[in-house]
């Protein structure tokens, strides 16, 4: 597979996604109009979106791996993970109220996040390389928001939509990866005091560090590397859960503490 869309189509689709993201409305999945779209086409649209955001003054802070658990792949009907970029404009502080009026249909998931202190470049990056290049890991909540109607999409469309990235919240307790077992971290997500998701970190490709390695190797295919100081979210351990104004969400982690957020209008 390769890029099949011409420059004009890529810009056109990018503008469509950018409009939906910045003005918070749903659009049909892109493959309805471009059924021959490839995964590479999806990344071409995403790269154009990243270029535009950076041109508008957003700062690239890192990347996210998506669709990395069996639960998520089954929920979304896809079979390969994806990646998306993260900017400073998407960050929200722990214990804050997150507005939903600028989102389409937000959902939350709990993830283990990594902060690196060495450059990582594919191909062939392993989980061991990732651990070696990790300053610390921390618990995080990702607020995903597909811009596609009814959260109905395919891999090509979701990649163009930057992996449904919308907001992210890091918090809890930072830990050196060598001080904990990254595979067996237990996670409980509660919404308004009720448990809505449970699992252990191995749900993400067997080990969240594997998801980061995969992400770096995909970055290589896109001609990118992961610079030291990057923030990386390794993918949802639990299924994504819909939220609305008034909801309180807390993600509790073994050894990493918790992250708590509320949602408002």
């Amino acid at each position: 597979m390769s890029i099949t869309l011409n420059r004009e189509d890529i810009v056109r689709l990018c503008e469509r996604v950018e409009g939906a993201q910045t003005r918070a409305y749903a659009i049909p999945k892109l493959t309805n109009e471009y059924p021959g779209m490839t995964i590479e086409d999806g990344y071409a649209v995403q790269s154009e979106l990243r270029r535009r955001f950076i041109e508008q003054g957003h700062t690239l802070v890192g990347w996210k791996a998506g669709l990395t658990s069996k639960a998520k792949m089954e929920q979304m009907g896809v079979n390969v993970p994806s990646i998306g970029f993260l900017t400073d404009k998407m960050a929200r502080p722990e214990n804050s109220v997150i507005s939903t009026s600028d989102l389409v249909h937000p959902r939350v998931e709990c993830e283990v996040a990594f902060v690196t202190n060495k450059d990582l470049a594919g191909p062939g990056v392993t989980a061991g390389d990732v651990i070696d290049a990790t300053d610390y890991v921390l618990p995080a909540i990702e607020i995903i928001d597909s811009r596609f109607s009814g959260f109905k999409f395919d891999l090509e469309s979701v990649i163009a939509d930057n992996g449904s990235s919308a907001r992210y919240v890091g918090g809890g307790r930072a830990r050196r990866p060598k001080d904990i077992d990254l595979r067996t971290l237990g996670v409980v997500m509660e919404k308004n005091g009720e448990v809505v998701g449970m699992g252990a970190s191995a749900a993400v490709l067997g080990n969240p560090a594997e998801a980061v390695a995969m992400l770096v190797n995909i970055l290589h295919d896109l001609g990118e590397r992961l610079p030291a100081g990057s923030f990386v979210m390794s993918g949802g351990i639990t299924e994504a859960v819909a939220v609305q104004p008034g909801d309180h969400v807390i993600a509790r982690y073994q050894d990493l503490g918790s992250v708590s957020i509320r949602f408002g209008e």
């Binding site: 067996t184 237990g186 409980v188 448990v195 699992g199 252990a200 191995a202 067997g206 073994q254 050894d255």
Partner: peptide
């Protein structure tokens, strides 16, 4: 050990089968 938050990873024939946590 935090028995409530301890994660549980179950593998069958060396492949991940499911994960869980004490709180379940």
């Amino acid at each position: 050990v935090d028995i409530t938050m301890a994660g549980m990873v179950l593998e069958k024939n060396s492949e991940l089968f499911s994960t869980g946590v004490g709180a379940a």
